[in-house]
Structure formats: structure tokens, C-alpha cells
Design a protein around this nucleic acid. Structure first.
Length: 586
RNA sequence: CGGGGCGUGGCGCAGCCUGGUUUAGCGCGUCUGACUGGGGGUCAGAAGGUCGCAGGUUCAAAUCCUGUCGCCCCGACCA
């Protein structure tokens, strides 16, 4: 490719509104341009990187035995009604209606394809002999984001690789799950991403049934915990909290003070109470009133902790859990929202306490009276929980559930998710098969997603410097940029063309910066875009029969003899391509 | 959906508070010509804007008022 023949609108200045590195650099390097909030056009350079990523994904999925197909992006809404997901998705679902023969046909733009693929399989798969089967596609998905943000990291339209596996048994599902997990590791490894597989919320099957693939980054929207000692990693929502030394009896040297009631006008949040009483959140016990399958319960967590609704749901063995409405809270506690407390509560409703609550003595709690809090409340003396369990999100410094070392908490970008679905969709869409024992059984499913755009944005978030993007060879829009210093010099341009053609013949993606610009302009743009290898053709070098090569991540250039240069460059790139992980260690 | 900010040539901004000396300005980019030629060069000239949109106040609106649309950030939400 020649620079003058394509469209590369680089920018010196950062467009207004872009803040995080991937967004700023993708705009400045001319990879993408915004069409509206949450929707981007991929310009030629951005598309090339996206295609590099999809090619890797496709190769590894094929290698893992998955079969590619291409499903419709639109779908009659009725299919989503059958699985109850119109309600589940709510406003996230992008709906439309098509005028057909004077009638309106309601449709959705698919946010994911469980419905279509399960319907498909239910129609064409009827025997155990056809299973297992893994189908995948790479396609645009639509999810209306209430608030799109962070450039291409969170958009309403994005490219997803979604795979679905179909099985006769759990053993078969587990086998494919492992195969997919391994394929994901290879994919992200080849993309030079510092990925971290973490345990995630797993749905109905439980156990280790779900993993998210995370890229640790300060701009990630997810939080993961990671143990530097044993390698345990999990989403904070999922992470178990180690049992090391919990529920220990009260230290005898702590004096339990007399309980007292204080006026706390206007203080209904933890923050306000702390400010008013001049105590730290650790000294507070938060009392949350939930409706568990419709019945009110109190959940206690320490003031600095967050309740985890999934854990509560599991611990209480209930299906539906929601925070109680203000009326219910008033009725149950006798006070408005913000003044609930455990003292005297257990006579009315069950109290479920998180482990950490029991370690707080002389605590501050709500008094179950308007504008009043209690101080010096101590567990067991002043209230007795109905049950004690792990009910909160993990926080920095919590003990690891495997080895008791302190867990570290990090922000991360989710780029992939593997999930054991079970029979959720095959049940509601009636996807069944006839087994060897001549009985009808429901197909067991798994699903496996990758956000392809996030591979690109995630890579940039973890690989840039003050000059611009630093692409690994495997994802770079072009692997080599050739910069002739003087485009008026016919011999120099002739050499540029020869190098370009010879490299292209060897399958190396190569662009010639044939713009009549000064060296500075070409170098700044090359650095901004981040081509891995830069080849400079200069008068002095050519006089000695030499050209200059420089890796984007190295400070200094080196000289190469023109004779045999193509072979040397091809070998260097090949080496880089095969050692994608080495990129991370630089 | 709650809170905050911003809409002025392709991009980044100033002007607005205190309406008229502004034919709306600056930097970058673009075009023409010349000089230049290894880290965003210099000079000379040029093109390009109904100041987001609609209404109102006024002799007069980029500037004041009302409404509306769009974009960004924080939070809530997110299979």
C-alpha cells in the first residue's frame, strides 16, 4: 500500500471528549471516527487491525474444532419472547419494526445469538450422532448502552465472536469448555495481550462453570481480585473470601462499652454518619433490608463493604432478591431509609450477617428510629444473627480463599467470556435429541464470546507511550512502514517500490509513506500509528548501499545492506510473529 | 435515569460575564508558489464559518432569556 492511496487522517491534537489512551490514540492515529455516541466507523487502518484480530480468532476457533456460520443480525422478537429475554434485556435490546404488506413486523437487532442458534439446532439436529457440535460466527451485535463511553470499549454496536456448543452430556460440555478455554488463551496470547482468566459468576450450574478473560488496565470497568502467591483470580463479585481466621472470638482486651442512642439528624448514608460521628466506615454495621422471594430480610455488612446480591441469593437459597422499597423499610424497621439497625430486629425478620460484621465491636448502627443511630453495639451481646455467611464483594487485602495471602484488587477490561449454559435455552426453545438409549433428551449447551473491538482497544490501553501506539506485529495494521526521505529522488522511490513489492510477495503487510513531507512529519506519524518496523531510505545510507531499520519499541535504529535486506527483514518479522508473548516483557 | 461540563471553518481553542470598533479572531490542517529536506521547517498568497437548532428580548444578539437537539465526564444500570 502507498500512503497517498489510502485514507489516514492523523491528528496532532486530541479531539475534545476523548480521555482514555485507547480512545485518544485511535482517533489521533486515524483508526476510527465517531458517528454518534456509541457507534464508530473503522477507517482503513483501524479495519486492518480489526481484521488481524478476527483472523487470529477464526484460525484458533477452527483449530479448536468450531465451525463457522453467519446468522442474521435481525430476528423476530417472538424468539426472544419465548426465552423471556425481551424483559430480561429491557432497554438494552434494540427493537424496530418492519413494514410488510401493510403490517408491522416487530424485530430486534440481536444482542447475542442464543435464540437463533438454538432454534437452528433444534430444527436440524435430532440425533446424538450429530453431537457434539460447536458453531460460531463473527458478527456485529447491538446492545443499546444507556451511557456509551470510553471510545470503542463500550459501544452500542460492536463486533463479537460468539460460539455455541451443543452436547449430549455434561462430560462432553466440560471437554469442549476446556478446549475453548485453551483456544482463548492462545488467541489472547497471539494478540500479545496480558490476559488474566478469572472465575466469574457462573449461573445455574455452579462451581468453576464460568471464566472471564480480563486485561488488567486502570481504565477497565470490571474489578478482579488476584492472588500473587497462588494465582487465584476472580471477578470481585464472584471471589470467595478466604476463611483464614474469620469468626474469631472477640479479643478479651477490648472493652465492650454501654450501648447508647444518639441524634444523627440528616445522616442516612454511611458517609454522612461517619462524618457526623467522626468515625471510620469500618466501625459501622450497614443494615440492608431486602425482599427475598418477596419476604423482608435484613442483611448486615461492614460499613466499608459492599453487599453481593448473588452471594446473598445463594446463601438464602432464594430465586428473587431485591432491595426493599421505602414503604416496606418504614413498615419493617419503623424508620425511613437510612436508619435501620440489627438491635431488636430479629424478632421481626431474619438477620443474615456477613462474617466481617462479627468482628466489629462497639459499632455504630441505625436505631430503627428516624434521625437516630446507636453507638457501642456489639454482636452477640446486642443482636444475634439468624445466619452467618460470605455475603459481600471482595476488597483489596482480603485473604485468598486458596492460600490466605492477601488478594490484590485490579481494574480490568473484559475481552472474553466462556460459560456453561446448561439447558436454559434448549429447554425454552425445545432443542432435543434422541439418545442411544432411544429416549428424548434436552441438549446441553455452552457459549463462548469474545469482544473483538476490545482486543484492539485493550491492546492499546496496555501498549503505548508518549508518541503513540505500540503495535505487536500480529495486530499492526501494517507490519512495516517504508519512509523514503526524498520522494523527488527517482532511484530512492524505485528502491522503495522494490522493497515494498518483495516484502508483500512474502506476505508482509507493508506501507510506503510516499508523501512529499519532511522527515519529522513522517516519523511522528509512524510513531503515532505505531507500525512495529520502520525502514528509512536516506541519501547517505543509500550511497553506501544501506537502509535503516528501527523497531517501534526500541530507541535506536540499525543499518542493513540493501542486498539481502528483504530476507533479513522477513526473518526478523517471522521471529516476532512467533514470539507474541515476548512483546509483553518489553 | 440523577449530577456536572461543552457545542464558534476539517481539528484544537479565544471572544460571551459587561449586546454595537469584529466585514467573527488565533493555532494546526488544506490549496497555490518559492526556498528547504533525518524528528511536525520558512516566506508570500488563498479557500473555508447562517457562531448546534428553534423561538423570544432589543434599534442591534456568537454574546441576554426560553425551549430543544447533540456530545463528553461522574454515578445508577448492564445478558
Amino acid at each position: 500500500m502507498y500512503w497517498s492511496k489510502t485514507l489516514i487522517p492523523t491528528m496532532k491534537e486530541t479531539p475534545e471528549g476523548a480521555e482514555i489512551p485507547s480512545h485518544v490514540l485511535m482517533l489521533r492515529a486515524g483508526l476510527v471516527t465517531q458517528v454518534m455516541a456509541g457507534a464508530y466507523t473503522y477507517l482503513p487502518l483501524g479495519l486492518r487491525s480489526l481484521q488481524k484480530a478476527t483472523a487470529i480468532v477464526r484460525e484458533e476457533m477452527n483449530r479448536a474444532g468450531a465451525v463457522e456460520l453467519f446468522m442474521s443480525a435481525m430476528c423476530p422478537i417472538s424468539l426472544y419472547e419465548q426465552t423471556n429475554r425481551v424483559e430480561a434485556f429491557g432497554d438494552v435490546l434494540v427493537k424496530a419494526s418492519l413494514p410488510r404488506g401493510g403490517k408491522k413486523v416487530p424485530i430486534v437487532f440481536c444482542p447475542t445469538h442464543e435464540e437463533i442458534v438454538t432454534d437452528l439446532v433444534s430444527r436440524f439436529v435430532s440425533s446424538y450422532r450429530q453431537l457434539p457440535l460447536t458453531l460460531y460466527q463473527i458478527q456485529t451485535k447491538f446492545r443499546n448502552e444507556e451511557r456509551p463511553r470510553f471510545g470503542v470499549l463500550r459501544t452500542s454496536e460492536f463486533i463479537m465472536k460468539d460460539a455455541y456448543s451443543f452436547h449430549t452430556s455434561l462430560e462432553s460440555l466440560n471437554e469442549t469448555y476446556k478446549t475453548m478455554y485453551d483456544a482463548y488463551c492462545r488467541i489472547f496470547g497471539r494478540c500479545s495481550l496480558p490476559y488474566l482468566p478469572v472465575e466469574a459468576e457462573s449461573g445455574p450450574i455452579g462451581g468453576d462453570a464460568s471464566h472471564e478473560f480480563m486485561i488488567p488496565s486502570p481504565n477497565g470497568e470490571d474489578k478482579v481480585v488476584h492472588c500473587g502467591n497462588c494465582g487465584y483470580a476472580a471477578n470481585t463479585e464472584k471471589a470467595e473470601i478466604g476463611g483464614c481466621g474469620k469468626d474469631k472470638p472477640e479479643k478479651s482486651d477490648v472493652l465492650l462499652k454501654e450501648i447508647a442512642e444518639l441524634d444523627t439528624p440528616g445522616a442516612h448514608t454511611v458517609e454522612q454518619v461517619c462524618k457526623f460521628l467522626k468515625v471510620k466506615p469500618v466501625r459501622l454495621i450497614k443494615t440492608l433490608i431486602y425482599l427475598a422471594d418477596g419476604k423482608p430480610v435484613a442483611v448486615l455488612v461492614r460499613g466499608d463493604h459492599e453487599a453481593n446480591e448473588n452471594k446473598i441469593r445463594r446463601s438464602l437459597k432464594v430465586q428473587k432478591l431485591e432491595l426493599a422499597d421505602p414503604d416496606t423499610i418504614q413498615r419493617v424497621t419503623g424508620a425511613p431509609v437510612g436508619f435501620a439497625g440489627p438491635v431488636g430486629m430479629v424478632e421481626k425478620i431474619p438477620i443474615h450477617a456477613d462474617h466481617a460484621v462479627l468482628e466489629v465491636v462497639n459499632a455504630v448502627t441505625g436505631a430503627n428510629k428516624d434521625e437516630k443511630h446507636l453507638v457501642n453495639v456489639s454482636p452477640y451481646r446486642d443482636f444475634r444473627p439468624t445466619s452467618i455467611d460470605d455475603l459481600r464483594n471482595a476488597t483489596d487485602g482480603d485473604p485468598c480463599p486458596r492460600c490466605c495471602h492477601k488478594l490484590k484488587i485490579r481494574q480490568a477490561i473484559e475481552v472474553g467470556h466462556v460459560f456453561k449454559l446448561g439447558t436454559k435455552y434448549s429447554d425454552s426453545l425445545n432443542a432435543r435429541f434422541l439418545d442411544a438409549d432411544e429416549t428424548q433428551k434436552t441438549i446441553i449447551m455452552g457459549c463462548y464470546g469474545i469482544g473483538v473491538n476490545r482486543i484492539i482497544a485493550g491492546l492499546i490501553e496496555t501498549s503505548y507511550d508518549e508518541s503513540g501506539i505500540i503495535w505487536p506485529v500480529n495486530l499492526a495494521p501494517y507490519e512495516v512502514v517504508i519512509c523514503p526521505m526524498k520522494v523527488a529522488d527517482e532511484k530512492m522511490m524505485e528502491l522503495a517500490k522494490t522493497l515494498h513489492d518483495d516484502l508483500e510477495k512474502r506476505g508482509i503487510d507493508c506501507i510506503v509513506d510516499d508523501r512529499d513531507q519532511r522527515a519529522g512529519v513522517k516519523f511522528k506519524d509512524a510513531d503515532l500509528i505505531g507500525f512495529p518496523l520502520r525502514i528509512v531510505l536516506g541519501e547517505k545510507g543509500l550511497a553506501e548501499g544501506k537502509i535503516e531499520t528501527k523497531w517501534r519499541w526500541e530507541k535506536d535504529a540499525s543499518m542493513l545492506d540493501v542486498a539481502g535486506a528483504v530476507e533479513t527483514i522477513a526473518a526478523m518479522l517471522d521471529d516476532e510473529r512467533k514470539n507474541a508473548k515476548r512483546f509483553l516483557n518489553r
